[in-house]
Design a protein around this nucleic acid. Structure first.
Lengths: 208, 208
DNA sequence: GTTGAATTAGACCGATCGGTCTAGAGCGAA
DNA sequence: TTCGCTCTAGACCGATCGGTCTAATTCAAC
């Protein structure tokens, strides 16, 4: 439902970061926030990493907080693009589609040196101290679970999971367990906790 | 196996924080680290909260990092005390003992306003930046899972879970999923994710 | 009471923090 | 060319950071 590019120029009010500097800042910010977290990351470090003067930063962003929130938005665009690609794939059974999404996510984690999930990292660091971040991040998880619940409902109708299952609750449990496994994967710097968790979940969901 | 108080005075080399000031600092530090995390917490804030001068802090602790590591040690004493109390309870079936431990932990979370688990919080915040914390926290999780695996092995022998189960892997999955649920509980400020995850896990573990 | 170590007390340090401000460069439209 | 707006550039700000240092105090052992 998001508005795509309608026509080439289209100077819309708030499009994708069409501006090169802003885009660079957001990309560097994503990698740095993922690794260092929020409070350990200084604005100056982002500036140095991108050879950007401070004036540009505060031209594009109201504050460090605003910057991090926009990094989260960028991150979520990627997540939802992955969900679009996987969950809509009618050729596969719904449970397979969900699993495939997580397996692709796992590959993504690997490519970043097992730094886990930005939502989990910032959620743990900031939710005790900032209601803005707490609510924003909870909303992100909630949206993801919502989309998975649609798929699980389809699985339920097909009889792939028990008829008495509650798809939304199962989706929340899945997302939460994934986040826990992502933390452990980050601590161990390997993917084993992720695959072990997925194996357990999908075996259990189908079996009982 | 830990040494208990042998005789009242006993000036041993590194006992429990017998010293009142150090104890106060660690207690305040636990609550503050749980809420604010590491990087957002200034040493001065701990000093103010406990009316302690800076000289005392750096008398008892080498550095802020040393302080946080000792706070983790204190936290783990509590966790292992809980495990001692629950897992050894021969009157209950092994699976019940584990579940009871988590239910007590959940009560503990509630009493602290659903700030989740210190290991999860610091693990996410620091594991990308500090190998010291990363390894320490991984070790903590590993020890907890190890103890639960003993109980799960007992459950396996009794036939409460399938004979082909791998207790250690099941224990790791359980701990990881719990941490994920604890994060979500922190984001939502309520216990629902914790109970949903436990329900799913124990139903699945026994059933299949 | 004297001594010496443990602890308290807090001024002080350089570095870094997030953020502001002014100046000018770049550039498209008129 | 000139205007006007966007964006770059970086000096500068007060506050706070973790940590050091010296002096005063406390307290137990003798």
């Amino acid at each position: 439902m998001r508005n795509e590019a309608v026509s080439p120029p289209a100077p819309s009010s708030n499009p994708q970061p069409t501006h090169a500097t802003k885009k660079r800042l957001l990309e560097a910010g994503l990698a740095m926030l993922l690794q260092q977290g929020y409070n350990d990351l200084g604005v100056q470090a982002v500036l140095d990493a991108t050879s950007t003067p401070k004036g540009s930063f505060y031209h594009h962003f109201e504050s460090k907080e605003d910057f991090a929130l926009q990094v989260i938005d960028e991150y979520m665009k990627g997540v939802h693009a992955g969900l679009d690609a996987c969950l809509g794939d009618e050729a596969r059974p719904p449970l397979d589609r969900i699993r495939r999404f997580f397996e692709m996510t796992q590959q993504h984690y690997r490519s970043e040196g097992y730094m886990g999930c930005l939502l989990g990292g910032l959620g743990q660091e900031l939710s005790g101290v900032s209601d803005v971040f707490r609510r924003r991040i909870e909303k992100c998880f909630s949206r993801i679970a919502e989309r998975m619940a649609v798929c699980l409902e389809e699985a339920r109708r097909r009889g792939d999971i028990p008829a008495e299952s509650d798809p939304r609750q199962m989706a929340d449990v899945l997302v939460d367990c994934w986040e826990g496994a992502a933390l452990r994967s980050r601590l161990r710097r390997n993917p084993a906790p992720l695959t072990a968790m997925l194996d357990f979940y999908f075996r259990s969901a189908a079996a009982r």
